[in-house]
Design a protein around this nucleic acid. Sequence first.
DNA 1: AAAGTTAGTGTAATTGATACACTTAGTCAA
DNA 2: TTGACTAAGTGTATCAATTACACTAACTTT
Lengths: 247, 247
Amino acid sequence: MSGQITNKPLVNPHVSVDCVIFGFDGKDLQVLIIARDEKFKDLAPSLPGDLIREDEDLDEAANRVLFELTGIKDIFLEQFRAFGAPDRISNPADAEWVRAVRSEPDARVITIGYFALVRTDYVHPSPSSFAKKAVWVPIKEVGTLAFDHNRILQEGRKALRKKLQSRPLGMVLLPKKFTLRALQELYEAILGKTLDKRNFRRKILKSGILEPLEIKEKGVPYKPARYYQFNKVAYENFPENEFYFVN
Amino acid sequence: MSGQITNKPLVNPHVSVDCVIFGFDGKDLQVLIIARDEKFKDLAPSLPGDLIREDEDLDEAANRVLFELTGIKDIFLEQFRAFGAPDRISNPADAEWVRAVRSEPDARVITIGYFALVRTDYVHPSPSSFAKKAVWVPIKEVGTLAFDHNRILQEGRKALRKKLQSRPLGMVLLPKKFTLRALQELYEAILGKTLDKRNFRRKILKSGILEPLEIKEKGVPYKPARYYQFNKVAYENFPENEFYFVN
DNA sequence: AAAGTTAGTGTAATTGATACACTTAGTCAA
DNA sequence: TTGACTAAGTGTATCAATTACACTAACTTT
């Protein structure tokens, strides 16, 4: 970074994608976070991301990051914002890491934020074949991240909330069969507020995206709940901009 | 562009902003389009945009483009999406222009799309002091644009529609005093559908963002309409996510 | 003074949102 | 086996918002 104000166009920036990957374990909303490897283990962890490559579109790059991390393709993935402040990487510890890892450490990095949704039970982060150590962290417990990743995470969360207001997102975050309580907890985790049980059920069931199953919970010390599954057709044809949750 | 598939990170891209600048003339939704100058006058026109500069944040770059074009600062401006397909500039005519104008013509260009709202009567595009020729074009009459600018325009329009569903946008697009009919026509132009007059009026007036004036239209060959103005305080405190227009 | 044009207004029916409490079906421990 | 515990599952009444719909009023022009 030059530190000088100039009128010169930026000629050698790097462009990256950073992914806010949400998961749900039945209780808390989680995020995939990358721990630093041995050499840099004192540094703050980061969101998964990478520089985009030649001949690679932005969406492709984000999909690649996700695939390398989780082994999953064709995931729900959506761009939500670009971040390009000149001082994105100005924190001294971050800068040190960048110098060690990047061939052009002084290059400015513009990053495109994506958010993704995956089932935590489908993703076993960090199989030994992958260099990076990814861990699920409940979103409430995420501490200080590298660069401006806390901000990116926050914006990603906002984008997720907004998305939930116009689409039912459960299908990619819940197992095939699930109880209405689980779905409600997912909504509550995303929206960050509690919902009325009866009103929630009425609204969801009326929308027609769920099919009741004949199976019930087993072994619970209370009245067992019925399982439901998504009706794929109804789910996909769900009209944009319905389902607007306030309570 | 190399034409080869590689795993190399993209090291020398350019980053630009492109702005979809909406205006309203009381009847049609318009967009500011840049005509090519003499030397390239056969080329398709484009959206206003520029490479971002060293030490310049993305929002700053977009604001600069807008200011250079219109002389207005502090405009309503919002980022809506990044575009980064490797073949964005592949059209032969576009490529020729890029070769003539840019110092690194083969560089890939990632662009960040912004949309902005201005009053057409505040903007006299292309004062002689500005090199670029900008013209207002009704959005329905925009023809083929350079690069992927038709797509950017389309996405910008979608973003505008979406925004209108959660915020009343009239204040930046209408003159100080305006009739309810003008406001309704603005909404109809943005949403692309007709609205019921009585329901529209009831909804807008109940929201409290308008103040009636004692002035009426003059010289019209029909019952003159009352003028209104926005109540700035109510307008700015308007709660996100109300005002959800379906009809 | 008649024709033409848009402004301005009200209501009834339907749908959606909200607030709220008890019974049921299971497990577990005494 | 019975009582304690827990979450599932259900209905209703009130209020607010949405929709569909048609006539009179005010002004200009001829």
